[in-house]
Simulated scan of single mutants.
Amino acid sequence: MTERVPSDHATVDSHRVHLETVGRTGRPRVPLPDALDHDPEELLRLSLEGDEAHAQVTADLRGEPGVEGAYPDAQLARAGEGENRLAAWLDRHGLGEGDPLLFDVVTAGYQYGLRRPGERVVYDAVEAPDDGLADIAEKFG
């Protein structure tokens, strides 16, 4: 079941993070808030101010989790192929290293949102799939 939830709703937990870059490549990287527990290789649903995408959690050289890209579907996110919607979104808004972002927890462990401070977004909150179904989908996806 899908429910529409605004970013300022009491059920949405917002965390302030600052945009980073990856080494000399200059690729953007969004660190995950310390309060969240995510493992590298984990897939997340990530809304970029309403633009739905999928992202794979990666670890930096310190082992800290973050997201370096957001893609149209889970398979492309795993492969890091196709249009990187995160990079496009950051470019569209002129965001760069050190800029603040808000990382919203829409559905803990499954769905998150990224937005600029001061922006209000309405998310289509989706329940996390059953673990058994997710495992089956992972094998075929």
Rank of each mutant, 00 (worst) to 15 (best):
G69K: 05
G96E: 04
G113I: 05
R16A: 15
Y110S: 12
D73A: 10
L90E: 08
Y112H: 15
R85Q: 13
D124T: 09
Y71G: 00
R120F: 07
R115T: 09
V122T: 13
L102I: 15
T11F: 00
Q111Y: 10
L48G: 14
L102C: 15
R4G: 00
R16F: 00
D60K: 10
A35P: 03
L90I: 14
R27T: 00
E81N: 06
V17W: 07
L61A: 14
I136S: 00
T58R: 11
R115P: 04
S47G: 14
V126N: 00
G63C: 13
G132H: 02
T58D: 06
G69T: 09
E119N: 05
Q111L: 14
D60T: 12
L95N: 07
T58C: 12
Y123A: 12
P117Y: 12
A77E: 01
Q56C: 06
E49Y: 04
E83L: 11
L133G: 10
V57T: 07
A87E: 08
D13Q: 06
R16W: 00
Q111W: 04
A87S: 12
D60E: 07
E42I: 02
A53L: 03
E97M: 10
T21R: 07
F140W: 13
D13S: 06
A10L: 13
T25E: 04
L76F: 01
L133H: 04
R16D: 06
L90S: 12
E20H: 13
P117A: 09
R4P: 05
R27A: 15
G23T: 03
A10N: 07
P33N: 12
P72Y: 00
E97F: 08
V22I: 14
A125R: 15
S14E: 05
A137Y: 07
V57Y: 02
Y71P: 09
F140Q: 01
R45Y: 00
R78V: 07
E64C: 10
P40C: 15
G50E: 08
Q75K: 13
D37H: 08
R85I: 02
A125W: 00
A79F: 04
R16K: 05
L90Y: 07
P31S: 09
R78M: 06
H15V: 07
E20Q: 15
A128K: 02
A53Q: 09
G63H: 12
G141N: 14
D131E: 10
T2P: 07
E49S: 15
G66Q: 05
E83D: 10
L61Y: 08
D130W: 03
D37Y: 03
D91G: 11
T2S: 12
A88G: 04
G94F: 01
L44P: 02
D91P: 05
V30S: 11
T25Q: 05
R120K: 13
L61V: 14
D130P: 03
A79D: 15
E68L: 04
H18Y: 08
H15A: 06
E81Y: 03
A125P: 08
P33D: 13
P28A: 11
F103C: 11
D73W: 03
D8N: 15
Y71D: 02
D124Y: 01
A125L: 08
V30A: 08
D73K: 09
V121S: 04
A87K: 02
E138V: 06
A79K: 14
R120C: 09
Y110L: 06
L76D: 05
D73R: 09
L19S: 07
A108Q: 10
S47Y: 04
S7I: 08
A55W: 01
K139A: 14
R45G: 01
E138S: 08
D135M: 10
P100K: 03
D60W: 05
D73E: 11
R24M: 01
